[in-house]
Structure formats: structure tokens, C-alpha cells
Design a protein around this nucleic acid. Structure first.
Lengths: 198, 198
DNA sequence: TATGATGATGAACACCATGTTCGGTATGGT
DNA sequence: ACCATACCGAACATGGTGTTCATCATCATA
């Protein structure tokens, strides 16, 4: 887990990660067996266990890569626009863009195919970002800060899922607009049309 | 799956369901094996397979019970208040009350312990309810109706999870109030406090 | 209360994934 | 060229799976 230098080890790890990805896309995480992974990656059984303790370990490890990529995308976006987006929830845009690039992977994670692990890990990563984005949201007595964070993350995932599953035609910025609207203003405007039949 | 009449069959099914519940609470769904279930339920291996095709089948089946209970609670609540709650999202209150009664089970489902199956099944049940509650929400060009449904369900689950995991002391009606506020008005009010350091 | 039907039992089965061990081989860094 | 180290692959014990079958218990009726 510490400093990996040897090329052979790197090769092996990459092979295992991409094998797991292919398999998740093909048959889902739960249904994927370690046997499948090492077959797909052409790696010896003992080699696998030399690197990871099991498939969950392998998957969790993969999310560190995602975290890094997202952080970079974040920085790049911020630099590109001269730091002009201090808007609330300014980070979401870069996220939707990133998701557009890896639509198949995100779709697998966000649909059921990544198992509980993927969802909870994704939530964890997103929570970090959102928490950074809401540095001083006042904890008005009504709704606690942590609940707001969870709410924003939940909305992000809802829009993301809906986008990838049912409206893949939309652009990232369109999806982002819907996210912002829901997260900031809620669904009140779309709901208050109840027939108040006296 | 059809008409079950024989007492013996009913006994067996009940035993299996409650065994699965105990085990999910104790060690989580994924970690629970069929062996565990039939041991806990004191039921023969072949008997299990005579009723269900596997543990997933058993769990899915259990959610039909939940659906029925929720529907009843719904009807009861509506009857109790002389149909006075035509408010938007009026159904949520009964749901939080119900959750308070089975806090441990809900907690297991909503945390990771119920596996992907439980979460997706719970989402399905809740989506039905929400869809019924938003009969004619206008599909304003901005946000599609189905997205609104998913958003409301997501918010419901977010608040539910946060409540059961971190603020179990709150009353159902307090949790419900937070849900309403977030679902209807979003988090804008809690967020627009960014330090706009020029 | 006797009876036929149906459900439950539990042992036995082949099958497959798991996680570990170990002697041997190939490839890396220097 | 050397040696450390990563990989290999076969073998192993373990444990869960899903099925079958003969036997026994319990149910619904007459």
C-alpha cells in the first residue's frame, strides 16, 4: 500500500483495475468473482492477493484515482476561468463534465452495478468536495450543516443518475443547471399546482 | 408466489423472513448466507429452495409487506385527520412515523447493510408513493416530472438516513419538517452566505 | 379419527469461489 | 552481472451453493 516503484507491480495493478472495470460494466460488481478478475487481467492468483485483500479492496482503491482526477479537473476549471466562479456550488460543473467523459463508468457506479461499495465510496468523495464548497454555511437552527451537505450530495447523485439513465442526450451544462435549480430552490415551483378542491 | 394456504408454508415463510431480518441487523445482507438463514429459521435446506430461489428473492418478497404496511399507515393517517392534509407532499409524515416504529430495520436498509437490493427496492416503493402524490405537477420545461419524483425520493432518503444515523433523538414530525423544507425550497437559504472576498 | 395430499426434513451430491502456501521462474533496479 | 523482488501456477482445505430423494410430519376433509 505504501510507495510502489517497481514497474511490474504497477503493470499488475493497472491490469487488475481495468479488468475490474470491464467486468463491472459487463456483469456487475457483485456477480464478478476474483477468478474472473485474474483471468481477465492474466494475473496469477497469488499475485492478486499479494496486492489486495479482495475485490472490495481493489474497488475502494480505484476511487482514490477518481478522487485525484476530480480534484485535477476542479483545479483546471477554476484556473481556466480566472477564478470567476465563486458562485454557490461552483464545483458541480466540472463534475458533470467529468462524468460525461466517463459516462459508462459513472452509469455503472450510480446504477446498481457497482454494489454498495461503489455508491458509498462515491458519496464519500462527493461529500468531501461539497463540504469544501460550503465552508461557512450558517447552521441556522432549522437545518444542520451536515444535513445540507448530504442533501446536496444526494441531489447531485439524483440528477446524475437521471441524466445518465434517461436523458443521456443532455449536455453537462444542462444537467448542471437542473442540479443547481433543485439544490438551491427545491421542487416547490414544480409542485404547488395541487388541485385544492374545497 | 400464488395463493398460499397451508399453515405450514406460512409458518416457514414467516420464519425465513424474520430470520433474514435478524441476520441483516446482525451482520448485514451481503455477509448473510443461505446457510445462516436456514439455521436461524430452523428450516431445511430443501425447504428454503422450495419457497424462494435465493436470498435476493426472499428479501424482495419482504418489501411487498412493507409496501402493504405503508399503504395502510397512509390510509389511516388520511382518515384520522378528515382528509385535511391536501398539502403538497402530505404523505411524508406517515412515512416518518412508520420509520420511527421500525427504526432498526429502516436504519439497516438505508445504511449499507441491506445491500443494493434493499436500497433499490425501497426506492421503488417510495417512488410509487411520491408519484401518486404529484399527480399533475406541471412539466415546466426546466425540470421534468420524473426528475422531480426522483429528487423528492432522494431527499426523503437523505433526511431519513441523516435522522436515523445522526439525530435519532428528533421526533418524526421534526424530521418531516426538514424534509419538506429541503424538498420544497432547497438549500439556497443555508448556502448563500459565501464570503465574497473581493 | 382415518386418509390421502402436501409440505418439511436432512443427508448426500457435484460444483465452484475463496484465501493460503510454496518452489520455481522472470524481470526489475543498480 | 547480480540480487532482490515480483510473478507464476499448482495444490490444498474450507465453505457456500443449488439439487435430488427417500422418509417423516402435518394439514384439510370426510
Amino acid at each position: 500500500m505504501a510507495e510502489v516503484i517497481d514497474r511490474r507491480a504497477l503493470r499488475t495493478r493497472k491490469a487488475l483495475h481495468s479488468a475490474l472495470m470491464s467486468l463491472i460494466l459487463r456483469k456487475g460488481y457483485e456477480a464478478t468473482t476474483i477468478q474472473d478478475i485474474i483471468d481477465e487481467a492474466d494475473v496469477g492468483r497469488s499475485t492478486f492477493y499479494g496486492h489486495y485483500t479482495g475485490k472490495e479492496d481493489l474497488l475502494r482503491n480505484g476511487f482514490q484515482i477518481l478522487r485525484r482526477e476530480l480534484t485535477d479537473a476542479q483545479r483546471a476549471a477554476r484556473a481556466g476561468t480566472d477564478g470567476a466562479q465563486d458562485e454557490p456550488l461552483g464545483f458541480s460543473r466540472a463534475m458533470f463534465e467529468h462524468a460525461a467523459g466517463y459516462a459508462d463508468v459513472y452509469l455503472a457506479m450510480v446504477g446498481g452495478r457497482g454494489g454498495v461499495v461503489a455508491i458509498s465510496e462515491l458519496r464519500k468523495v462527493l461529500s468531501e468536495f461539497v463540504r469544501k464548497e460550503l465552508p461557512a454555511a450558517r447552521d441556522d437552527g432549522a437545518v444542520s450543516r451536515e444535513l445540507v451537505v448530504q442533501f446536496v450530495v444526494g441531489t447531485l447523485l439524483t440528477v446524475l443518475t437521471w441524466w445518465l439513465e434517461r436523458r443521456p442526450g443532455l449536455t453537462p451544462s444542462q444537467a448542471d443547471a437542473m442540479f443547481r435549480r433543485l439544490a438551491l430552490n427545491g421542487a416547490g415551483a414544480s409542485i404547488r399546482t395541487r388541485s385544492r378542491v374545497g
